[in-house]
């Protein structure tokens, strides 16, 4: 497809420059486009919509009577819930010290800051109108964050792989379920988009992941991968699946 082919699209149904006409005469693809465009013009117009019925008029009027809520309020509410739960989780898990991750403090705090950023920024990005490129980059950054969690571990192997793993799994799920429910509720205020739901799910899962990251003393790759990161990814996938089945309150982008 050439530049002229795309230029033709802008000039369908209008008088064309001689150079463009010459291109159309020589290009089979463009001839097909012109022919199809002309044929569609012969199709009759779609029907006029019937006058709005009383029930719809009432619904519209009621909806208009309610105050408009800016999108970022929902984002802030979800981010605040996430922070409260992660704080409560860290407080509840704390035994001797707030941080029992045995990796070097620089690595522990660098990853913790990234996880906290995901917890706060994730809902805002997932709920913001537009921002397709930002969503794309955010989505791409989550797997990197998951990799950082795995490779940033201390390497310390638990005595009982399964028992330690199950307790981490339970903590991860317990702390992340409520944020996931909240963010799914917030997502129903706009149209379903896989990218929005996935970002929201990742950020909800980051709540449990952050509490575990600070609390869990075990840092072997297999433990972190199977009981910190995989449940996190599973929760993100479940968030997308649940959101896709719920009805949207609005189809706004």
């Amino acid at each position: 497809m050439t530049r002229e082919c795309l230029l033709l699209l802008e000039n369908l149904g209008r008088a064309k420059e001689p150079s463009l006409s010459a291109h159309v005469a020589a290009c089979q693809h463009c001839q097909a486009v012109v022919k199809a465009h002309e044929t569609l013009a012969r199709a009759r117009s779609a029907p006029l919509w019937q006058a709005k019925d009383a029930a719809f008029a009432q619904s519209l009027s009621q909806a208009a009577g309610r105050p408009a809520r800016p999108w970022w309020i929902d984002g802030l509410v979800v981010a605040a819930v996430n922070l409260l739960i992660v704080a409560a989780g860290i407080g509840a898990l704390q035994s001797r010290a707030a941080v029992t991750n045995l990796a070097s403090p620089e690595i522990v705090w660098a990853i913790a800051i990234l996880l906290a950023a995901a917890i706060i920024a994730g809902p805002m990005i997932a709920l913001a109108p537009g921002g397709r490129s930002l969503r794309k980059y955010t989505l791409a950054s989550f797997p990197l964050l998951a990799v950082a969690v795995v490779v940033g571990g201390s390497g310390f192997q638990p005595m009982s792989w399964i028992r330690a793993g199950i307790s981490c799994l339970v903590v991860e799920i317990t702390l992340s379920v409520v944020p996931a429910i909240f963010v799914v509720w917030a997502l129903t205020t706009n149209a379903f988009r896989v990218s929005r739901a996935a970002i929201a799910g990742f950020s909800a899962g980051a709540v449990g992941a952050l509490a575990l990251h600070l609390h869990c003393p075990f840092g072997s790759i297999s433990h972190l991968l199977c009981f910190h990161v995989l449940p996190w990814l599973g929760l993100a996938a479940a968030t997308v699946a649940v959101r896709s089945r719920l009805r949207s309150k609005s189809f706004a982008p």
Binding site: L60, A63, A64, R66, A68, R69, P70, W71, I73, P129, G130, T189, N190, A191, F192, S248, K249, S250, F251, A252, P253
Partner: peptide, 25 residues
């Protein structure tokens, strides 16, 4: 949707594409 989600409309954005985005969704 337009009425319920008017808080998502960005000032300065063109209306017609926004409306058609809602309809498309």
């Amino acid at each position: 949707s337009l009425v319920r989600a008017r808080g998502r409309y960005q000032r300065g954005a063109r209306f017609r594409p926004w409306l058609y985005a809602i309809a498309t969704n």
